[in-house]
Computed example of a mutant assay.
Amino acid sequence: KLTGKNGKDFFAAHHAEIYPDKMILDEGGSTSRCPAVKHPKCLEIKAKTFEIYPHDKMVARDVKVFVRGKHIYSRDYWENSLTEKSKERILPHIGFKDSDKGTYVNLSYERPLGDKDTIYADLNYYSKVGYKPVYGLEHNERNFKVTYENGWYEDDDEWVEKQNNIRFDYKNHHIAPGLPLSYSAYFERGLWKNDDSGRKSWHTEYGAFLNHDRIYLFNSKNTSLDLTIGKKWTRESAEDTLQSTNVYYATLGQKISPHWNTWVGYYREDFTTDVFTYDQPDMAKELRNGLQYIMDDKNSFTIVNRYDLDQKENYETRYSWTHKFCCWQLSLIYKHRDTNDKDSAFEAKFDFVNW
């Protein structure tokens, strides 16, 4: 009857063979990051055999994944790194959204292919629109990141399928030592499709940004100002168009007390494509303010209000409450759309946060 711990991972087994370089759990075993003892583990992985190589990796065969004691997923083989650099991750998410999504179940999977490469999948099923998966490969360097993706994305009830989508992100870098200015850039290209509208286009998008380091006002860490300017370009093969926009972001934050935070932000960005509304700004000039109350280490409540400066009217108010449990959190979100009450929506999310 064995129990043990490696970093955040708990292990348990009936029997083990111990060797100089490894330990084999040969009569079944389990691993979890959940510390619960009064109820079934929030997320637990059981296997017929485990091979544990300390500070290196763990190999499991005939694997079953359990959520609160309920079997939800099986696989023949699972290998997980025990180093902090590289870990395989399996994360389930469950939720409901009052829109064309309905109830949804998501299983997120990541597997490192070395120090710089990772394959991942978001396996999404929605009660109203069916199976909408995303598959990707990410290559991560010190100065840049390259991502290749195929899959479905949604924004404001528009579903877009990205095919052979490649994105290059140049990470934020300071211009010169001692100068509080940094720059970043990105380039993205892929074949985008919207089956509802029948629109299909090779979507090319790129942009560059100049950021100022966070500014602390009044000699206090409690008051901060973040500033960003930039420019974006979008080309669509469907209409043979190239459109651009200037980008301005400014956010002023204030920590009122250990329990209260507030902020106000100004955002300016125009539409850069008439082919898709996906990933486009809701308004060209937006004033956004928020207030957060942190009740305790488990509960928080947030209100975010969005105001359309061009139309001079309130666009949306979002209310959200989050409760954290031992390994997961429950979020309840209500979005009231002032400009069109039919677009108001409720969402409930159940997410694991400890894996």
Rank of each mutant, 00 (worst) to 15 (best):
I18E: 06
R33V: 07
K38C: 01
H39R: 13
K46V: 04
K48P: 04
T49E: 13
F50Q: 10
D56L: 09
K57L: 06
K57Q: 13
R61Q: 14
D62L: 05
D62Q: 15
V65S: 05
D76M: 13
E79W: 00
S86E: 15
L91Y: 08
G95T: 02
D100G: 12
G102E: 11
S108I: 04
Y109W: 14
T118W: 10
T118C: 03
Y120P: 00
D122F: 11
G130V: 15
V134W: 07
R142S: 10
D155R: 00
E161I: 14
N165F: 04
R167K: 08
R167M: 06
K171N: 05
A176I: 03
G178K: 07
K193H: 14
S197R: 03
G198W: 04
H212V: 13
T223P: 00
S224A: 14
S237C: 02
A238S: 13
N246Q: 08
V247H: 06
A250K: 04
W260D: 03
T262H: 00
R268S: 10
T273S: 15
F276W: 08
Q280G: 07
K285C: 01
Q292C: 04
M295Q: 08
Q311A: 15
Y319V: 01
H323G: 02
Q329H: 12
S331C: 05
Y334S: 02
K335H: 02
D343C: 06
A345T: 03
F346M: 04
E347H: 01
K349T: 01
K349L: 03
K349H: 03
V353M: 07
W355K: 13
